[in-house]
Design a binder for these strands. Structure first.
Lengths: 320, 320
DNA sequence: ACAATTCATTAAAGCGGTTTAACGATCAAT
DNA sequence: ATTGATCGTTAAACCGCTTTAATGAATTGT
């Protein structure tokens, strides 16, 4: 690979001049610019990103850290979020370094990332990475509420509690008095937030929501989201009485629909179904059409990215 | 941020020694190692990835370049592919630099990427990036057949022609003689490969497949995949006679199912439906269950990544 | 015509690591 | 005691770029 020195030598100018031609940070005469560009092209020279980053102390890369789910695959929600993040960062010339590597806590194998900022999706409880990036002076934005809640941290999240409460009110308003809630994985903060929100809606009417009316997803027990909905409905339909079921996602609802068809349950006459997240954007295509809450994961990603961009801009004068 | 010099000075050893403690590339006595680690921890020192990359000429990052689709969102196929790529690269400590930035051809604004290798998804015809990376001496692997076909390029792809032919034979074997093919976007190489494969199956039986039996998706005309299936079936059902429809993906099939319900067409008695790609993994959940080809996009990603890893390993002795 | 600006260019000092060649100390073999 | 390895450590060169301070040429004002 040709370096900036090769070009400078060939053209007969200093490397500082060549540098300026490419970075456009200082005016260079038209004539010199053309000569430099011509030689650069001939030599196949492209500025070395790493060297430039070292000198400027900016990589124009943002890290996006995702938890590795059991099956190592991304949900629709995550995808949309990533999309939002990338879309927003791209506007300012930023790229995304995706990673799902588990963080080993061996300090010798941990290397500072080549990033100007980090977006951390679904942080673990008391996530050690948060402090680490703080220590390194790298701006960080969380997607999902941090636990324990730290006021000095920036994060974006949906108000899942309020959302679930809203859905609860809606169903109660329709006359439903007993529901089945097919919640997401138990140990996620969303899961408890939603349960709390739904309980609040019931409490407002002086009603209680028993624990056995809330089920939790588990990859081991059900295999996949649709299977979860299918099995849960078949299992519960005889045991409990309810006129509405709230599902985690549209995929879960798809399973519920199938079970309902097999059990001869008429939707929506006999049973109402509502999904808290239109994850796979299936709601419109289902028959009868599914009522689903739109979470706008992409918007979440966009907001997270904007927030990060602001923070990185402020941090700018980190000129040692 | 503390640098390696700070640590070296504080411990009273040379930076080379500190470097060796962290990179583990040279033996350092137990005693010194401990002292260095202790001071590093105290100072909050973490090796600078960029500086290290500059010195070693390796970033441990692979670029993944994706085309930006009109709606800026990733299909299930792409997601699975990305998953495969990340999974495989992670095994060797590699990370993924995702990017969908359009490549401007302004040489001054093009900077060499901080990557050791590149995976290019769905290259454009005569993609200029291919040459560019070649020039820069960066290994590159394509996902999707390059056009024009260049024997010196590495790529992985499904044999879409054979696949479509197989599906055609299957339907013909079942007694179908006239089909409707809801193909993907016209100007993709997959689209023509599939059409050719299906035609071959028909030709084997001395049958022809008219052009009007192959429809092509377009974002503008249909909005989304399911709407494509829905509209296409409604539009064609009266005009043409066919006993089977081959769809691009399961989502398209979902739309076909809905239209069929509305038109009172019985699936599969009156109409068989088969999808060439179980994109959203909906096939199992549909009623009646959909027949769909599994493309194993993740496997494709894994293969692409393995190939790239091999190439990067060979390239190793690029010691200038 | 002379001082005061402006402007493009340069030499050299970083940026924060790795790596090579040299070195003194320790140890085993002669 | 002498030679030859082996081992941990170091000083200095290097990776490829940016940036600062200095310089000389060209332009402007008076």
């Amino acid at each position: 690979m040709a370096t900036i020195d090769d070009v400078a030598k060939a053209v007969g100018v200093s490397k500082g001049t060549v540098s300026s031609v490419f970075s456009k940070k200082r005016p260079i005469s038209q004539e010199v610019t053309e000569r430099v560009l011509a030689v650069a092209k001939e030599l196949g020279y492209y500025p070395n990103h790493v060297a430039r980053s070292l000198a400027t102390r900016k990589t124009m890369i943002a890290g996006l850290k995702m938890p590795i789910s059991r099956d190592m695959s991304l949900s629709g929600f995550e995808i949309q979020m990533i999309n939002g993040v990338m879309k927003q960062l791209a506007k300012h010339g930023y790229r995304v370094l995706l990673d799902t590597l588990p963080e080993h806590d061996d300090p010798t194998s941990f290397s500072m990332d080549p990033v100007d900022g980090v977006i951390l999706l679904n942080p673990r409880k008391a996530d050690p990475r948060i402090d680490r990036y703080g220590q390194m002076g790298i701006p960080i934005v969380l997607v999902g509420r941090p636990d324990p809640d730290d006021r000095s941290l920036s994060y974006v999240d949906n108000d899942n509690e309020a959302l679930a409460c809203e859905v609860g009110r809606y169903l109660l308003g329709l006359g439903h008095r007993s529901v089945l809630f097919l919640n997401t994985i138990r140990d996620m903060t969303v899961a408890s937030d939603r349960a709390a929100g739904l309980r609040r809606a019931f409490a407002e009417r002086g009603l209680a929501l028993d624990d056995d009316r809330i089920a939790y997803y588990s990859h081991e027990a059900y295999g996949n989201a649709a299977a979860y909905g299918y099995s849960a409905l078949r299992e519960m339909w005889g045991r409990l009485s309810f006129t509405a079921v709230i599902t985690d996602t549209d995929r879960v609802a798809l399973g519920v629909y199938r079970a309902a068809r097999e059990l001869g349950i008429a939707i929506p006459d006999e049973l109402s179904v509502i999904a808290l997240n239109n994850d796979a954007t299936l709601a419109q295509e289902m028959e009868p059409q599914l009522t689903a809450v739109e979470l706008y994961a992409e918007t979440l990603g966009i907001e997270a990215a904007s927030l990060l961009m602001d923070m990185m801009a402020e941090y700018e004068p980190q000129q040692k």
